[in-house]
Design a protein around this nucleic acid. Structure first.
Lengths: 209, 209, 209, 209
DNA sequence: AATGAATGAGGCTTCATTCAT
DNA sequence: CATGAATGAAGCCTCATTCAT
């Protein structure tokens, strides 16, 4: 803070990944050139290659980052008091941090890339499995699951919940400009909440007023 | 030679679009070259430019095609006897015709492209709106919607149903090879069906045991 | 001849290879860029890739060409009346057609490349073997070989003769500018001739006045 | 720290040149990067520039080194008891020290480089002249030259002998793996020896049987 | 003396697009 | 209508060289 050194530790990797995230969200993986990234990061092209073997490695690293972030969210969700609160944490984090447009565009592109880049596919599968296993476990242990009115297994409930979440995220890229980001988000959240209550309905009052 | 009444050329546009669909699903829009398409179609590169202004126009035309197909499915769904049957038609068509992998890869790429190509975005938004309006209407008029145990409006129900469908399609690209296409599909369909029954539960089971 | 068409068949491959030969001789394989070649050939860079998979393929094709040329020379040598005449054909062709500097620079670079590019090495080994086998055969059958004053086998004689030829070619790149090309060549030829006479000495008069 | 009398740094120049020799032999001058050299030498890239102005200077210095080595060999040859012994020293040194492959690849590359880098050409010409002058002198003074059966001048004999030596070295890079290094070498040496005896045949055998 | 991060020009290659035939 | 040779801009990546530390 009082240190006069301009940049104590310019974590280049992170700097490059941040720039790449912006570029990828803006134009997609394959429309983003190394020049775009270097320009956004304010460094030279060659320098990127000191930190990443090639463009694919940048994409993989971003997927890795995405994985860590999601795992942190999972940890937070595990600490929630109720199942619905946990789901809300997951749903919100998945789509709402940063500008939702950016995240959504990136994630959809990530899945598109996964469908043909095996290394990325592996990463996405991995994070997907981890998080879904975590949520399945959460559901299986939740008291809210006891008096359910459906015959969905915890696993199936998880699949349903994630499908809704991913599906909404996918639609997000269309950027229906008839509403602000937060309004749109609120609408989606409301739908999701109602589904959750339906799935984990307790006799008592609705969780959210 | 002088006879120009009978269709002299095969439907080139369709031929090209079919080839493009295969290529796009295989490698994505921006990884597919015009030569890939011409090779797959068995024609020369130059010929593509007689039918499409440029590569973007091919992509847009594919989105157009996708729109027509989905609208046809909507028509079929409208003729179904019950709401659940209609949903099943929609869900199945959306994901199951052709090889699901192909369709899934294409659709995810289409959404990714929509997030930055305004013309594609416009088309996708259009088809999305049309189909969702259609389903909302279907739901609003369905007798199954009367005795619902939730407070979801027809519009919200539609959003929920489509989110589930799209979300599952998105996961499809990961191609978890632990099951055949149809097995995977069956599992997804089972989850979706249970949701639908929960949402439009009719005959029997009282909501509160 | 009377045909008014400007270029009846612009054998692109040959055109490119000619340009490449000039460039390679001028600056070596790895100092020659595809731009250099395309410039020398008067075409665009991209066009080279219609005819050659990549730069290495151009090098290999040149080595191939070199092989054909040498084999033709071998054929001519086979038709010579005396062994010494045959050797003179081989020696002269190997080093003297075109500008000797160009050929020499190219061949030395070719060997240098062979020492690390397996595909080129294979080609050079192949042509080397073919020609040396041919000459060994020529020697074995020549009457001049009968009354030799040495105990060198035909194979060894061949090795000796080729070593001399190659060694002189190697020196050629130094371009000792104290003499014209042809003078230098004449000096080399004189030395070589004397060696050959020594090796295949007949009792009679020297073959060449 | 204040002591600067005793050689504080190891002989960096030599260390770098040794590393460069290994790299150059392995991949050729222009395929060797400064990083390759620094890596092989176990130092940083920047340090090379403290001892050499640029990459070309490294190449020139290597040629210089090569020159010194050859001159030392010439000195040794001068001390030999017979002409044939002297030639054997020269022939053996030229091709056999270190791994022959390495030397051969380096020398062929050196000549290739000489054909377009004037500074290198100058050096190679210089060393060539020095050594050939030395050998010419050796031959002129040798008693073995007296009763020769040929009309070759000492200069021409030198050219012949060196051509054979260089030609065999050039072939060496093809590394016909059908024999070990030493076996191959022995075969070459045998051919060369027979030539020498033919050229400087002394004691016994009359020329005409 | 020594390091290695940083630069940016330049090399190889691909690809959308045009156009003569 | 159809072809495919041709172009050239642009993308990915390497590497000689510099310079702050």
């Amino acid at each position: 803070m009082s240190d006069s050194r301009i940049e104590p530790a310019p974590d280049r990797r992170e700097q490059i990944l941040n720039a790449a995230m912006i570029c990828f969200a803006r134009r997609g993986f394959h429309q983003t050139s190394m020049h775009h990234i270097s320009g956004e990061a304010g460094i030279s092209v060659g320098l990127i290659y000191r930190y990443f073997e090639n463009k694919d490695a940048v994409i993989s690293a971003m997927a890795d980052n995405h994985k860590s972030e999601i795992q942190q969210v999972l940890e937070r969700a595990r600490g929630a008091e109720t199942l619905l609160a946990a789901l809300e944490i997951l749903f919100t984090a998945h789509c709402c941090e940063n500008e939702p447009q950016v995240t959504a565009a990136f994630v959809v592109d990530l899945f598109a890339e996964a469908s043909r880049n095996p290394r990325v596919a592996e990463l996405v599968r991995d994070v997907t499995k981890t998080v879904m296993d975590g949520v399945t476990d959460l559901i299986a242990r939740a008291t809210e699951s006891k008096n359910a009115t459906h015959d969905l297994t915890p696993r199936q409930l998880t699949e349903l919940i994630f499908a809704v979440s991913d599906g909404m995220l996918m639609r997000e890229v269309l950027n229906v400009s008839t509403a602000t980001d937060s309004e749109r988000r609120e609408r989606q959240l409301e739908v999701a909440r109602r589904l959750w209550r339906l799935l984990f309905k307790s006799e008592s009052a609705p969780v959210y007023a």
